[in-house]
Design a protein around this nucleic acid. Structure first.
Lengths: 191, 191
DNA sequence: TGTAAACTGCAAACACCGTTCGCAGTTTTG
DNA sequence: CAAAACTGCGAACGGTGTTTGCAGTTTACA
């Protein structure tokens, strides 16, 4: 698992082939199947292994919104450290013990909230998704360029680029976005 | 492109192999390379082809928040029709003319908003992400089960399941989540 | 109309992938 | 000390994306 994670960190998920992992372990590809049933198995184990980096969880004291934001920030950091994780967490099979523990900790933080269980589940899913979104934007953010593209069919786009680049947002965007989302999901009275 | 989209709709992205597409076209795999430079090219074209289903865009009259929500709903519907699209939109190369047109239309809708260009860009990215999140939850929502998992290490989870299943949320969750998110991103005074 | 150039289709091959099989070599068990 | 279990792994199978080379067809031009 450590070898696979190292390869993925360095060259992406596609580079995690059984032969590559075996080579890094100085063994043969077929030998891995004594310990893994398939490559998907390995990917699941990788996902759960980096999910362990989410620990330690914050104490459930104080404002639960603040605690949830700390959880989300930890999730974002893990996804920035391991950009391939987003690609994995789409598959339902990647939910291992560590992922469940994280989920459980989130529920514990929200225990004081009066929201529905369903609402809490959806709030966690959204928090997860937003953390991934921000991580991806941070890692591959400036990868796109408009060089060589005729922009005349997109008037609003060129108008937007004519404006001077504004100052970075005052408060952290991640906090603002998640606060707004979680409040909308968990406190229907504030709709 | 139509053949590739049909295969992906039926059997997923992994089933879109050059040989499979060629077979559906009753031709050889190598023939495709007269029109495509690579499989990635085909995937990019597929993404942009289904992005055309986002048209027609709503008129930019009336409340821009409502218009944006209509855009987001269209995006969600496309992602529900083509579940493989989420897997594609992670790659930066998938931004084609139709995707740019959609982006431009969003900017046009937000022209009346006083927010920063940066804020608008991020709002569109978030809207995109949330639409994908909801689409994925709708398509593969109930795929996961706790059967055969020892839940004793997860006390809050079992406590949550002990509660009776609550009634579905009153207002549409998609609207609520997106409204809260967009308001937080575009109207800093309401933080 | 005739010929040259350009375009198109595609079988075969290459390198790589995940996975299985079978057999040695080693370790543990009784 | 023999039998059983475990471990490593070369070789092979069927799949993948892609390249090559060569026929067959269509177009362009004199």
């Amino acid at each position: 698992m450590a070898a696979a994670v190292a390869i993925a960190d360095a060259d992406g998920l596609a580079a995690v082939s059984m032969r590559a992992v075996a080579a890094r372990l100085e063994t043969g590809a077929a030998s891995l199947y004594r310990y893994l049933s398939s490559r998907d198995d390995l990917l699941d184990l990788m996902a759960d292994r980096v999910a362990a980096e989410l620990r330690p969880y914050p104490e459930p004291h104080g404002d639960w919104m603040d605690a949830l934001l700390r959880m989300a920030r930890a999730q974002r950091e893990v996804h920035e450290r391991h950009p391939w994780l987003a690609e994995l967490s789409q598959r339902p099979s990647a939910i291992g013990p560590e992922a469940l523990a994280f989920f459980d900790a989130c529920l514990g933080i929200m225990a004081a909230s009066p929201a529905t269980i369903t609402a809490k589940f959806e709030a966690i899913a959204m928090m997860n998704g937003v953390a991934i979104l921000f991580a991806r934007q941070a890692s591959a953010g400036a990868g796109f360029t408009f060089a060589g593209i005729d922009l005349t069919p997109y008037p609003h786009l060129v108008a937007a680029f004519r404006q001077p680049p504004a100052a970075p947002p005052a408060t952290d965007l991640f906090d603002r976005a998640l606060r707004g989302l979680l409040r909308a999901l968990l406190a229907p009275d504030a709709s």
